[in-house]
């Protein structure tokens, strides 16, 4: 932790939040875990469900590595609490392939070398799945703009955009 708390802690009676059973529907499977309200969806996935494909790159909504799909929409899982997502359909990178058959975006990322270290990759791919579903990207410039919430420090943007363009050209949501 960075610093001392700004607010007056002593007044708050250091105490622990109550744990409760929370059922999350992740990649089509319901999983019940005991956790306190202060657990982010990202930490619930990584630390409580061992779904470590979703990455923590900043924990503050400033990088996009934690992108998952909730009810079909891409969000930053670090900024929502797990308990708030009870009852919602959560799809993570682990849920995109159908058995051995990769999602077209996953295939395109491999083909276009749309990554280097691979750490932002799950977030990029989930974000791109969301982008395709939104259907707002008409041009290359649109793709770049609408993918700008996913930082790639290795600088693989050129290839990421090519991979997404290819999937769009091939009809986008073929995998559904």
């Amino acid at each position: 932790m960075q610093n001392q708390a700004a607010f007056e802690i002593s007044a708050l009676q250091p105490a622990l939040p109550p744990q409760q059973a929370v059922t999350l529907k992740v990649n089509g499977q319901e999983k019940t875990i005991k956790l306190a309200p202060w657990v982010s969806l990202l930490d619930a996935l990584r630390e409580y469900l061992q779904l470590t494909g979703t990455k923590k790159g900043c924990d503050h909504g400033q990088c996009g590595a934690c992108t998952v799909l909730v009810n079909g929409k891409r969000i930053n899982s670090c900024l929502t609490l797990a308990i708030m997502e009870e009852g919602n359909e959560i799809i993570t990178i682990e849920g995109l392939a159908k058995g051995d058959e990769l999602h077209p975006l996953q295939t395109a990322f491999i083909e276009h070398d749309a990554y280097q270290c691979g750490y932002c990759t799950p977030g990029q791919i989930c974000s791109a799945v969301g982008l395709l579903a939104e259907g707002k990207a008409k041009t290359t410039a649109d793709i770049k703009e609408l993918m700008s919430g996913n930082i790639c420090r290795c600088g693989a943007y050129t290839n990421i955009v090519s991979a997404i363009e290819e999937v769009i050209q091939k009809g986008g949501q073929a995998h559904e």
Binding site: F7, D59, L81, I83
Partner: peptide, 26 residues
């Protein structure tokens, strides 16, 4: 109150906000 949480959760993590009770209004 918490809804999107995009700013509040962020600020809670850096100890700038410290609510002891959250009301999810979504």
């Amino acid at each position: 109150f918490i809804a999107g949480g995009t700013n509040l959760t962020d600020l809670m993590k850096v100890n700038v906000e410290g609510p002891n009770h959250l009301i999810d209004i979504r």
